[in-house]
Design a binder for these strands. Sequence first.
DNA 1: TGGCAAAAGACTTGTCAAGTCCTGTTACCT
DNA 2: AGGTAACAGGACTTGACAAGTCTTTTGCCA
Lengths: 134, 134
Amino acid sequence: MMELTRKGDYAIRGIIYLASQPPNKISLLSEIATAVDVPQTFLAKIFQQFSKTGIVKSFRGTGGGFLLAGPPEDITLLQVVEAVEGPILPNRCVLKPGECERDLTCTVHPVWRQVQQQVRGLLGNITLKELTTK
Amino acid sequence: MMELTRKGDYAIRGIIYLASQPPNKISLLSEIATAVDVPQTFLAKIFQQFSKTGIVKSFRGTGGGFLLAGPPEDITLLQVVEAVEGPILPNRCVLKPGECERDLTCTVHPVWRQVQQQVRGLLGNITLKELTTK
DNA sequence: TGGCAAAAGACTTGTCAAGTCCTGTTACCT
DNA sequence: AGGTAACAGGACTTGACAAGTCTTTTGCCA
């Protein structure tokens, strides 16, 4: 359980590639896809989500491509993962207080919240910089 | 992401019900299913897995049913979850060293291992006793 | 040995991951 | 302006797996 989807995996590979390029060097989608070995059309979807959430900047037309929106040390693994996988929720009842009808009786609730916080904390502390400087 | 399946959710509900029964009181599957509001046939599958992994004892025939295999303070949430959901693996490459062909180059690897350990540690520290003594 | 209850396996249904494909939109270049 | 280079977005396909259901078998007890 708790598995990252392939999309999440691809997303991480792709953005690490971007982060390891020279600053301000625009990368083509085709180039990234080949480099990290992911179907280009699928990677396109992923980078569209990156673009929407603002961790990547995109440019169209000739000379276009993708660029990291900020310095690698400002982008965390948490941002990357949540951009494509959605929020980290060990159990759907964690989010909204009213969701779980057995809310008050549910003794497991606080445990899931703890798990969520731990994982978010961990991923939030890892930046792209640390993932590139091998 | 990282969501527990409904099966896992049901499993927890079911075993907490068992744990909150008087010691040595055998519970019928039908009784548990009604109490925790889960389809009986589905809960049956779950308890079969419990039985196989040994956290629950089962008895057939008249007067049969289910019993916690040990005291509630000896059974952890981790055991319960892994019994029905399989091992906690944030990424498939975490387990076997050879699985990931980009093994050596993969800088994310240690992060997933950390996540795995944190979550397992958390869940492993919660026992059924703590979940019943509200 | 009859009936009660769990075990086991085959089957169904629906959802979602993992792509593909096609068309649109924007930007540059001549 | 027209053509081409690239990303954006939507619709669609396929396969796997979650979530059950149904039926038969096995074991136990009275």
